[in-house]
């Protein structure tokens, strides 16, 4: 790890001030991706601004037909929280299959979505649960937030405060896990809001995205067979030592079908 200066602001305003005053500064939330990145010397921030002491970034509450979760809330807290389990059980279930228990005890919602790893679980949840990302500056709809591999709509000095997830009628996240890292090789998060269906795919492409053909098909007939005749174009999908693009295309359909079945 390269040396850096460490700051631990007590408020969001103070953190934003530190961040805007230094182009080379980076935020650390739970650190479960950022610290390994620093160890590999893939980043060399001048200053690391720790969000861990900012009370206004923590907490979970029920709000306007859904759940609002503070950016610094740990995955383990989401998985075990009574409000989340009651209002959006599929979201608690998703948090429970991130990494391992120790990673879930430190890793955060805000850190995961700001990093936008192509194989991370939370970005798909943003799309499937019609989330709204609230920052220190504005509100961003999930569909506008994820802009590419490790890229988001966040400005350089913008900090995620909390995320509102809209409660679906039913939902389920089905994940085909890498057996070593437990990242998603492909994950499908399916939700139904009345006659509208959302299908968010993670792990397969540059970043989480919606599978619109499946959404239309499932909107007319919410059954696993409804997507059986669809084809997934492997051309834009990831290919690596873990899975070829063709295999990922196959998994997109299988995971979607399993998620739909689990919603029943």
């Amino acid at each position: 790890m390269y040396a850096f200066e460490y700051k631990r602001p007590a408020s969001l305003a103070e953190a934003a001030q530190l961040l805007s005053g230094d182009d080379e500064a980076k935020l650390v939330a739970g650190g479960q991706t950022f610290i390994p990145t620093l160890k590999q010397r893939l980043a060399q921030p001048s200053t690391v601004i720790d969000l861990g002491a900012i009370g206004e970034l923590a907490g979970i509450r029920e709000e306007a037909g859904g759940v609002t979760i503070g950016a610094m809330t740990r995955h383990g807290q989401v998985a075990s929280n009574d409000v989340v389990r009651r209002v959006i059980p599929s979201l608690a279930g998703m948090a429970e299959v991130i990494g391992d228990p120790q990673v879930r005890n430190l890793g955060t919602l805000g850190g995961s979505i700001a990093n936008n790893d192509p194989a991370a679980d939370y970005p798909g949840a943003l799309l499937a649960l019609q989330a709204t990302i609230r920052t220190n500056k504005r509100e961003i709809a999930a569909d506008d937030f994820l802009t590419g591999m490790f890229d988001t709509a966040l400005e350089a000095d913008e900090i995620i405060k909390e995320v509102h997830f809209k409660k679906p009628d039913v939902g389920h996240y089905e994940k085909f896990r890498n057996p070593a890292s437990r990242y998603a090789i492909v994950g499908a998060y399916v939700t139904r809001y009345g006659g509208t269906v959302r299908v968010a795919i993670t792990g397969a492409g540059a970043c989480a995205h919606r599978w619109s053909a499946a959404e239309s098909a499932l909107g007319g007939n919410f059954a696993a067979d409804a997507v059986a005749g669809l084809t997934v174009d492997a051309g834009d999908l990831n290919s690596d030592i873990h899975a070829s693009a063709d295999y990922r295309a196959h998994l997109v359909k299988v995971m979607t079908q399993r998620a739909v079945k689990a919603c029943a």
Partner: peptide, 11 residues
């Protein structure tokens, strides 16, 4: 429980 190799002492 946390992994002490993935947490800074200052944290």
């Amino acid at each position: 429980s946390v992994k002490a190799c993935t947490m800074l002492a200052v944290q």
